[in-house]
């Protein structure tokens, strides 16, 4: 019932790690003068050929880059935003030629779909949603889930995007407290998971909109972010990061955690804590999980990578050219890691 039982993974010493496990494949520099905020990779059809493209987001422009045979990247399209800055890219899994972005200042104010005209000739953007949006996630089957608050209540909305960006809407039953993050549940079709501001995990049935369960996961770490959820043998396994975790000695600073939840009883146990190697300082700033690998940008400006099966940190990538890392994403098209700096440099490992 308590996550106090969490085991600490073997924590290797800092000097046994290096970025040698990561090979720099290519680099691209966004010449836009504004601050770089996010990166993603997706398939895009260009002149009849599907290419594994990179999407970069600066404050007021999102660009699509096509790979060249030389290992370099060519900018193909850019979408510009005049008034509200971009906060994050919202990738749509399993979708070609469509990406969404969240725009706002401190909180998300708008979600837009970015696409091209049917002849591939010009960039189009479609306003999908406005409001005080707390969380958004692209789901399989061209669906987008978002939660927003009005003065009285919270709305959790699923949009199914049709060709051209127009959409169908459906609402999920909202929990009382604000939803912070969403995750689809691998292994259980039509299950959607959310983390809330009160340290609860909620589960919905995407087909019926029912709120199935609310489960408290303990108060050890506040405001947890859910990066991955999968269902196996009747249990729900959830990978969380802990932006508010305090540094703990001597075991190190917990950055990610794997917990197991029994959805029938709402009981949970901690399975593994993923800590920084000894000698490394820092807390989670932002990160990404794909398959059994987790990557995080730390407050120290370093990127750390964990193998979730081995249970420990396998690589550390210190700041390059005296520039701290500011975001990191796993590629959706291959096994690449995309690491970005505020000045527009994107390194592909």
């Amino acid at each position: 019932h308590s996550i106090e039982q969490t085991e600490l993974a073997d924590v290797p010493a800092c000097d046994s790690l290096n970025p040698g496990n990561l090979q720099l494949v290519s680099k691209l520099k966004n010449p836009s003068g504004s601050c770089s905020v996010d990166v993603s990779a997706m398939w895009w059809e260009i002149a009849g050929v599907k290419e594994p493209c990179i999407i970069t987001a600066c404050e007021y422009a999102v660009s699509l880059w096509k790979p060249l045979d030389t290992g370099q990247w060519e900018k193909m399209y850019s979408w510009h935003f005049a008034e509200v800055p971009v906060l994050q890219i919202v990738p749509m899994p399993d979708v070609c030629n469509l990406v969404c972005v969240a725009l706002g200042n401190l909180e998300i104010r708008e979600i837009r779909a970015l696409l091209c005209s049917s002849d591939g000739g010009c960039e189009k953007q479609v306003l999908l949603r406005t409001g005080n949006i707390h969380a958004v996630l692209g789901l399989t089957k061209r669906r987008l889930v978002s939660s927003s608050r009005t003065l009285c209540d919270q709305q959790v909305e699923i949009m199914t995007l049709a060709e051209g960006g127009s959409e169908e809407k459906q609402f999920l039953m909202p929990p009382e407290e604000t939803v912070l993050t969403f995750a689809e549940v691998q292994g259980t079709q039509e299950a959607l998971l959310g983390t809330t501001i009160m340290n609860n995990i909620v589960i919905w049935n995407l087909k019926t909109g029912q709120l199935l369960k609310k489960m408290h996961i303990g108060d050890s770490y506040q405001a947890s972010v859910c990066h991955k959820a999968y269902s196996e043998m009747g249990l729900l396994f959830v990978v969380l990061s802990h932006p508010c975790a305090k540094e703990r000695e001597p075991s190190g600073s917990p950055v990610f955690q794997l917990i197991a939840i029994n959805p029938k009883t709402a009981l949970s146990v901690g399975v593994m804590l993923y800590c920084l190697p000894q000698g490394q300082a820092g807390r989670f700033l932002e990160g990404d999980v794909k398959d059994h690998f987790a990557a995080a940008v730390l407050t120290s400006g370093t990127i750390a990578i964990w193998d979730l099966l081995l249970g420990h940190c396998t690589a550390l990538l210190p700041p390059i050219s005296d520039q701290n890392w500011s975001f990191v994403k796993w590629s959706g098209t291959d096994s690449h890691l995309l690491a970005g700096q505020k000045d527009g440099n994107i390194f592909v490992y």
Partner: peptide
């Protein structure tokens, strides 16, 4: 983690919770 910590487990938890939850 031991099964005893988590109570009785059901492989069909999603269907069971969907049939129990309010529509």
């Amino acid at each position: 983690c031991s099964q005893a910590d988590l109570g009785p487990i059901s492989i069909n938890w999603f269907e069971e919770l969907s049939s129990e939850a309010p529509p």
